[in-house]
């Protein structure tokens, strides 16, 4: 009698516990499902964020690579162009240095002397030139009262350096100085011939 009552009680307890466990399981299952359902939009948001961050990063890296390689190419191009310009320059300077000192050249020297004395506002000057032009300049100086040719020659392609007799003013009218002043424009001309900067 007592045994059967005990067995019944145990069965009841077992049944109750089973129900509770099942209910808990069901509850947990629905909670888990709810949590999963809730996390889907968050996950989607997170996914979108990762994708957009990745895209941004990729864009950044792409810009870096394209930017630096473009610049590298451009810089190499500039250096190559400069080498070519220098070659043209050197050749042109050689040609000027070897020009025959007569005709047009004599007129040019006359103009250079004229210009120099006008700028210094005096003809009482000391004129320096290179050894090649010495005789030519000497012959032209007769037109300028008070002008003297310096005994020392200078190293230049052509042209003259004119100094006032007190040494306070100097005007460099050598071909070298004139070319130097015009160099940016000459470089542009040469570059244009190479098809750059049209």
């Amino acid at each position: 009698m007592t045994d059967s009552l005990l067995a019944k009680s145990i069965d009841k307890i077992l049944e109750k516990t089973e129900k509770e466990i099942l209910a808990n399981l069901e509850n947990s299952f629905s909670n888990t499902k709810q949590t999963l359902d809730d996390s889907i939009p968050k996950l989607e948001q997170e996914f979108d964020k990762i994708i957009s961050d990745g895209k941004k990063e990729a864009d950044k890296i792409e810009k870096q690579i394209i930017g630096s390689s473009d610049l590298e190419v451009r810089n190499k191009h500039l250096l190559t162009l400069e080498i070519a310009i220098d070659k043209v320059f050197t050749k042109a300077l050689d040609q000027i240095a070897n020009t025959t000192r007569s005709g047009d050249y004599s007129n040019l020297m006359n103009t250079l002397l004229d210009e120099s004395t006008k700028i210094l506002s005096t003809t009482k000057v000391i004129v320096s030139t290179n050894s090649k032009d010495k005789d030519l300049v000497q012959s032209l100086l007769s037109k300028y009262p008070g002008a003297e040719l310096s005994s020392q020659t200078i190293n230049c392609l052509g042209g003259v350096i004119v100094k006032s007799k007190d040494g306070a003013m100097k005007f460099d009218n050598t071909l070298d100085a004139r070319i130097q002043r015009m160099k940016p424009l000459i470089r542009k001309e040469i570059a244009t011939k190479f098809g750059v900067g049209n």
Binding site: E115, I119, L120, G167, A168, M169, K170, F171, D172, N173, A177, R178, I179, R181, M182, P184, L185
Partner: peptide, 12 residues
């Protein structure tokens, strides 16, 4: 830009 330069003064 011209080829003509300027005068150099040495009285400082």
């Amino acid at each position: 830009m011209t080829a003509k330069g300027g005068v150099q003064y040495s009285k400082i």
